[in-house]
Design a protein around this nucleic acid. Structure first.
Lengths: 205, 205
DNA sequence: GAGATCTGTTGACGGGATGCCAACAAGGCT
DNA sequence: AGCCTTGTTGGCATCCCGTCAACAGATCTC
């Protein structure tokens, strides 16, 4: 027996602002993760969330603002476990640090590649800023892990550049065809060791 | 004596398809190099080229197609001079190669950073493909310069990853605040030396 | 439980950008 | 001079986005 149909049932449900915002954001993350920015319309996101298009603007401002929120959500990396803050010789610390990072990445591999990948013409200062902040945070962690101060701006800059190597290497790996994890680990470890040993001491003002 | 003014002078000049195409492409390169994709309208490009908007579609198809053409144009790097194909010890060859590269980059610095800059979420397969091809070309050049075969897929993959380091480092430099050219050169040289010496031999199948 | 109130949500409007295409005209040919 | 080729224009139809006034769930009051 079917449930009795009420004469009037609500056409839409009311949600707490935080809940609604979260729900919309989730849909946006999914869609922006699948297709390029321009290929995702606010109509798509609204439909996906089962919501009027105008509501996106109400909660996030412009489409671009929503997009920035998505990026901010995706670039967050979990903090380094205290357990993995290594002691011992440089080589050991570096290797363990790289291992930890690859572990983390391998979980969110697809998303990670999507976020750090896709380089194209048309610098977007705002996005640049967000990613730069994330890179700087990562650089501080790396310096801390290998036992150096994170307060030297030049050192952080070098490590941020090293981050470019990390991303590119992970992309080669996750894309699944060209390098395997061991090879990536070797590359990243050797490079970081050289940087800490031979480069950082020279860029110190 | 001034030239006699004809009663009617042409409202527009006819150009050879190639010439017109080239002219439009130049304007597109300039604008896309300055602002993000979405912030450049076809109207802007058309106005800049002194041409009707519809002509862009006639020559390039969609705005996106024009954009891809711009990317293709920008990622081309001049070939390595034969003169700079170094002989001598590895260290010398590497350093000269890095120097050459930085020279090239410093000319197109602004554009280079714009092209290789991070766009953010939303992998664009087409652009990915174009940039990957360019990276692979660059990787072959590097391998050739340091005197190795470019036929080992794993080696090219490692060097493509190295390209990530190069781009990130150049960005730190060109952005003008964090690293200077000497520091970048040191970083890139040391890293490449380590890669050639300690990494490539290990990833050989 | 009926009405007042609050506010989350809708739907339509205006501005702007894009792709398309038929008509137009510049420049060469006969 | 008139014709022909085809590079070029300009307007139309469509879609996307931001705004905002009006609507209607949900809650409170009496």
């Amino acid at each position: 027996m079917a449930i009795a149909t009420p004469a009037e049932l609500p056409r839409w449900r009311r949600l707490e602002p935080d809940a609604r915002r979260e729900q919309i954001l989730e849909c946006a993350v999914r869609l922006f993760g699948e297709r390029p920015y321009a290929a995702v319309s606010t109509t798509d996101i609204a439909r996906e969330a089962g919501v009027a298009r105008g509501l996106l603007n109400h909660y996030f401002g412009t489409k671009r603002d929503l997009y920035l929120e998505v990026v901010r959500t995706l670039v967050l990396l979990p903090d380094l476990d205290d357990a993995t803050v290594a002691t011992g010789p440089l080589k050991t610390r570096v290797q363990r640090s790289v291992e930890w990072f690859l572990d983390v990445v391998s979980v969110h591999a697809k998303t990670f590649v999507a976020v750090t990948g896709a380089e194209g013409v048309g610098d977007d200062p705002e996005i640049e800023r967000i990613l730069a902040a994330a890179d700087d945070r990562a650089a501080r962690k790396v310096l801390q892990t290998v036992g150096l101060s994170a307060d030297v701006a030049e050192h952080r800059a070098v490590i941020r550049a090293y981050g470019g190597l990390v991303k590119a290497a992970v992309r080669e790996w996750v894309r699944g065809d060209t390098l395997n994890r061991e090879q990536v680990q070797l590359l990243l470890s050797q490079a970081l060791i050289t940087i800490v040993r031979d480069v950082l001491p020279e860029v110190n003002p």
